[in-house]
Computed example of a mutant assay.
Amino acid sequence: MTAPQTLEVKFSHFGFHVQDLEGMANFYKAVLQFTETDRGGLGAFQLIFLSRDPDTHHQLALLTGRPDDVQAFNPINQISFQVPDMPNLRQVYQRALAAGASDMQATTHGNAVSLYFRDPEGNRIEVFMDTPWYCYQPLREPIDFDTSDEQVMEQAEAIAKRTPRFMPRAEWRAEMQVRMNRDQGRTA
């Protein structure tokens, strides 16, 4: 019996229906600096493709056809984007406020500092940066984003240290690599 081949999968893109195709595309272009890579029709739907990576045709696909009555319950919990550091997170914060994003919330998960806000059609967006720590999840506590970068990170670390299994991210990553190798039938 041969060992199963390692499955290689990585996340590619997210597509969702919208009511205002141009308005939603403009929001993602203004706030997160996506570039429109293509647009066109496919049957009854109009699409706009957006990306921030020249090797990836689209990371977001916006499609017409969202019904009016989905505001009562949106099946999209959140669309998450990662930034490398606090200056980038602050830039998104300013852009989102300037674009009229609603429901702005600054939080920490201990292992990340996150901003949550809503796009013009009510979809929740998370933009986050990793911290150098791991702690037990789920964890979500508000932080004061109107303080300095150092103070934000101090808040995040203090909250993370109060939780079970606090450790450096590198240590957690090494544990996860062993676990994933086992789960995926790899030996190394």
Rank of each mutant, 00 (worst) to 15 (best):
A112P: 01
Q137I: 05
Q71E: 10
M176F: 06
M129Q: 03
V127A: 05
A174H: 02
G40K: 01
A99W: 00
G41D: 06
I159A: 07
V113S: 00
R118G: 07
N181W: 04
H109T: 04
F11N: 04
R118I: 02
V18L: 06
M167T: 10
F81H: 13
N88S: 14
T187R: 15
Q151W: 06
A170I: 02
H13L: 05
R39L: 08
M24P: 03
R173M: 15
N26D: 08
R165K: 12
A30G: 08
L115I: 08
Q91R: 08
S114I: 01
T108I: 01
Q105R: 15
D68N: 06
T107S: 07
R124G: 02
A44F: 04
F73I: 08
L63S: 14
Q71W: 10
H17C: 07
L60C: 10
H17N: 05
E175K: 11
I48V: 15
D38G: 06
P142F: 05
Y28G: 12
D103C: 04
D53N: 15
M129T: 06
R179Y: 08
H57R: 01
A98L: 05
F45L: 13
Q137L: 02
F145N: 08
F117H: 00
V9F: 08
H57I: 00
V18E: 04
M176E: 09
L89P: 01
Q78C: 13
R66T: 01
D55H: 09
Y116S: 07
A174E: 07
T108S: 14
L21H: 10
I48W: 05
R39D: 03
Q82W: 13
F11I: 06
Q94R: 14
D119I: 02
A44I: 06
G41A: 03
P132T: 01
R95K: 09
M104A: 06
K29W: 02
D146H: 14
R169D: 09
I76Q: 02
H13N: 10
G65F: 10
R182Y: 10
F73M: 13
L47P: 00
A160V: 00
D130Q: 07
R52G: 15
A72R: 13
P142G: 15
G65P: 02
L63F: 12
D38F: 02
Q151N: 13
T37W: 01
I48S: 04
D85K: 05
T56E: 10
